[in-house]
């Protein structure tokens, strides 16, 4: 089971603190939703959790190992899907070349992900020709193909229609039912209610709440969270 631990993590740009003294530990599986208003630092926190950027102060570890290492054990999906200039199939194959899977295993994994993402009919099309929803499904499938323990999703459904959102949530649920763990930043409260087991609420770069999603939505502890849920923040 993946255990994430942040210890006194701070991050600033040009002297302006964007995240301040964040500490928490997250051991349980399931979906962990990072909530907060625009500019609160949700995407930044996700980048720090994955180790793409290094905190100015503090430590981010997965099972005691620095987040800067073993990034391929986690899948990361961006808000706007980044598409390699290749076919859908070749996009899915790319991470497997990094993990040096053999050809037979690659083919099996690609077929499995094409099925999961409902992209099999488009497998040999240039990925650039996909719609926004299709491209995001491909990006998630590409993140999942190396069988990571954790999936990090940065507002994966912003700008997507309900049908695409539904398909992506189905992919997330399948991953969870297979034993995976998800960290998702979102400003879609309805989606957070549907998916989240745990909520991390941040505002102005500070972690204000961290606990079970049911409790957060039923009885937020801080005035900021109350204001956020009532649409005043």
């Amino acid at each position: 089971m993946a255990a994430l631990k942040l210890t006194n993590v701070s991050y600033s740009v040009d002297g302006a603190p964007l995240l301040h003294d964040i500490s928490f530990m997250q051991e349980n599986k399931g979906v962990n939703a990072i909530l907060g208003p625009n500019g609160a630092g949700k995407s930044l926190l996700l980048s720090l959790i994955h180790g793409v950027i290094k905190p100015d102060m503090g430590l981010v570890t997965w099972n005691g190992i620095s987040a800067q290492r073993n990034k391929l054990t986690r899948g990361y999906v961006f808000q706007t899907p980044i598409v390699l200039r290749r076919s859908v199939r070749a996009n899915l194959a790319y991470p497997l070349t990094l993990t040096r899977e053999n050809t037979q295993d690659q083919k099996r994994a690609i077929d499995e992900m094409l099925k999961l993402s409902h992209l099999a009919p488009l497998a040999d099309q240039p990925a650039a020709s996909l719609s926004g929803g299709e491209a995001q499904r491909m990006a998630i499938a590409r993140a999942l193909i190396t069988k990571p323990a954790v999936l990090l999703l940065d507002e994966p459904c912003s700008n997507l229609d309900p049908a695409s959102t539904k398909l992506i949530e189905a992919m997330i649920r399948t991953f969870i039912s297979d034993g995976g763990s998800v960290f998702i930043s979102t400003h879609d409260l309805a989606q957070a209610k549907r998916l989240a087991d745990v909520v991390l609420f941040i505002e102005a770069g500070q972690l204000l709440e961290h606990g079970p999603a049911d409790e957060f939505f039923a009885k937020p502890a801080t005035p900021q969270a109350q204001a956020y849920l009532s649409g005043d923040l």
């Binding site: 994955h50 793409v52 391929l72 961006f78 980044i82 390699l84 200039r85 290749r86 991470p95 990094l98």
Partner: peptide
């Protein structure tokens, strides 16, 4: 421009400098 497009993705995978070079040349 390709490197600008791919940078975050390749960083997220911790792609080695040589692999990055090969990937960018192939995709360009």
């Amino acid at each position: 421009p390709l490197d600008r497009d791919y940078k975050n993705l390749l960083d997220a995978w911790d792609v080695s400098p040589l692999q990055r070079l090969k990937t960018l040349i192939w995709d360009a």
